[in-house]
Amino acid sequence: QELTLRIGDSFPVGHYIPENMTKFWMERVTELSGGEVAFDYYPAEQLGKAKDLLSLTQTGVMDIGYVGASYVSDKLPLSSVAELPENFTTSCKGTKAFWEIAKPGGALDQAEFAPNGVRVLLVMVLPPYQVLTSNSEITDLDSLRNLKLRTTGGAKEIATTKIGAVPVQISAPETRDALSRGTIDGVLFPHSSVLPYDIHPLLKYGTQDVNFGSFVVTYVISQERWEALDEDVQAALVQAGDEAITKGCEAADNLDLKDKQTIADSGVTFVSLPDEDKARLGELMGEVSQQWASDLDARGRPGTDILNAFRAALEKAD
């Protein structure tokens, strides 16, 4: 007999994350369960906005939902830990470390996911965000001072302020206009977002090998739904999850390199900051994470504990 699970996310049709991770996972689950499990897939916010998918999964409108940590920062503030500018420059390193703490039984699961009644099935931490500018030449850390940068989310705003730049909030579809008319001097973007928004013709310089923050993708199932599944189905979901997470982050890193090359080919110069600036940046970004953690501590959430757990997992992930 067949079991059909409803799964939904907010990625546009054809986006690399569902193409490389989610769909692969669904196929593997169907395979591993001997065809017992099938999926009804609802992409592109068909069942609700990105910020609502956690709630829709908790209430059973869908069985499995995409949860972007920064969309639900009110409910899952600690999950943004991997969006901090920490010591990783690839998706796979960040993803492995985050999975270590977010998987059922991990520190983050116990602190946040389990209390919210959900269980993490899939994770991806995007390749770190870089500064990309339209005209201002990037040479060293000081050359980023006073630039108006399109930034999203709390920690990235603090990071932007730390390097002396000005964070500006602009919706993604309006970014291109803002860049072309000089309202902003640049963006804090992952490479994979540059091409879809078609901003590479407007860009001239970009940073590389540094981390100004990232973005956390998870797919969760409600605990209630999970417990109603047969053990062999649960096992299929877990095994397919491990495989899909690895495949997903590798695809993200490959695409990052490929997109970076395309962007470079369109005339963007990628700059490595001088070594002493990198060290200084590391210190500044460390302060961002400390501030994030102590703000949460002050509100009675274990910010420092989770940050330390993530840092420990990063050490191990190499």
Partner: peptide
């Protein structure tokens, strides 16, 4: 399902 949708979509 009904209350799940009504919980989120009005505000959104």
């Amino acid at each position: 399902v009904l209350s799940g949708i009504l919980r989120t979509s009005p505000l959104s």
